[in-house]
Design a protein around this nucleic acid. Structure first.
Length: 337
DNA sequence: AAAAACTGCAACCGCCAGATA
DNA sequence: CTATCTGGCGGTTGCAGTTTT
């Protein structure tokens, strides 16, 4: 067992604790500069300090060492810490070994006071570095509950303009083991829902995309939709929260039907069609009715046609949340399955 | 203006492993 | 072989400065 500062010395002299004074720093600095780092337990005696050796060692390592880098962490350093923490966890000394001039204590403090919160704000679990699946935005949660309470009243049980063979129930139905989403017309106004598709972690979106099957029936092409992400999606290039560029790889308009393919910073490509306009990819914030909303995983989109539905392959791969409504034309819709 | 709450960070504490007596 | 010493590490605390109420 190690000894504690207060009991290790045979000398009964009271040892100082707490913050170091400039005079103490001076004594320690002069001593180490002259004799170098050796046996810490003998340092206080020789340097004329009323401190334990352990305290001297810590003061030297964390503050007095001449090779210490001071000041804010750079973006590059931050990235290194994030990467290493994902691999090493709280092994601060090992992380510090990769960052010249930084101490384990400094990195630990930076992590606890800054990086941890930053990740949580992005919906990322700081321990696993993976999206927090149960921690969806509270606004989204509220809207989900609201819809569940309203139940199937949101959609008419049938619609003359729905594609043949499709039955609407609670705004969605299962077809071929997948889920159908639909928007509809009510009292002559278009219901263009905003929704959020959140994929389960581990879902391979790249291969999933090929299974996005869009069926749609267009009766009226809406051209005056607000563009919440200010996204020119014909030449889209925008940044996610980390500053990484996301690009729209392709964009087509064919008889009023759009399809696009967008790649984000994680190299996840999402192909969308049937009038779906991507607005925010994972980690992105955007505003909805003055409320800040974040897409945690998956993407946020907006239907652009009066009537369509889309099949997603495996219902267990994703959850769908309502994203609220825009005034007038848009209404709340979907819910978690 | 004062009190309370929050934040960042330096320093301490307890535990451990390896070295030494 | 055992007891003790030492340095290293990660978790936690306490304090000073700042912000909010």
């Amino acid at each position: 067992m190690g000894r504690h500062c207060s009991s290790s010395s045979s000398v009964k002299q009271k040892l100082r604790k707490g913050l170091w004074s400039p005079e103490e720093d001076d004594k320690l600095l002069k001593y180490i500069s002259r004799f170098g780092v050796g046996c810490w337990s003998s340092v206080p005696k020789h340097a004329g300090l009323q401190r334990c050796g352990k305290s001297c060692r810590l003061r030297w390592i964390n503050y007095l060492r001449p090779d210490l880098k001071r000041g804010m962490f750079s973006q590059q350093e931050e990235n290194i810490i994030l990467d290493l923490h994902q691999v090493l966890g709280n092994r601060w000394a090992q992380i510090a070994a990769q960052l010249p001039g930084r101490t384990d204590n400094e990195i630990k403090n930076f992590w606890n006071s800054c990086l941890k919160k930053k990740l949580m704000k992005q919906g990322i679990d700081p321990n696993t570095h993976k999206p927090v699946t149960s921690n969806c935005n509270s606004y989204v949660k509220d809207k989900k509950i609201e819809f569940l309470e309203k139940g199937c009243d949101y959609f008419p049980s049938s619609s003359s303009s729905m594609p043949v063979g499709v039955e609407l129930e609670h705004g969605f139905h299962v077809k071929n083991g997948g889920l159908m989403l639909a928007s509809s017309i009510e009292n002559g106004s278009i219901r263009d829902p905003l929704f959020w598709v959140k994929f389960q972690s581990g879902t391979d979106l790249v291969s999933y995309n090929s299974n996005f099957v869009a069926q749609y029936h267009q009766t009226n092409y809406e051209t005056s939709l607000p563009n919440l992400a200010s996204l020119d999606h014909q030449n889209a290039e925008f940044s996610d929260v980390s500053g990484s560029k996301m690009t729209t790889n392709s964009f087509n308009v064919n008889e009023g039907r759009e399809s696009s393919s967008t790649t984000n910073s994680s190299n996840m490509t999402t192909s969308l069609s049937g009038g779906f306009q991507p607005m925010a990819f994972e980690g992105e914030m955007f505003q909805l009715n003055g409320v800040n909303v974040k897409s945690e995983q998956g993407c946020v989109g907006q239907w652009q046609h009066q009537m369509h539905d889309v099949q997603l392959d495996n219902a267990s791969d994703f959850n769908i949340y309502s994203m609220g409504s825009l005034p007038g034309t848009y209404t709340d819709v979907f819910h978690q399955i």
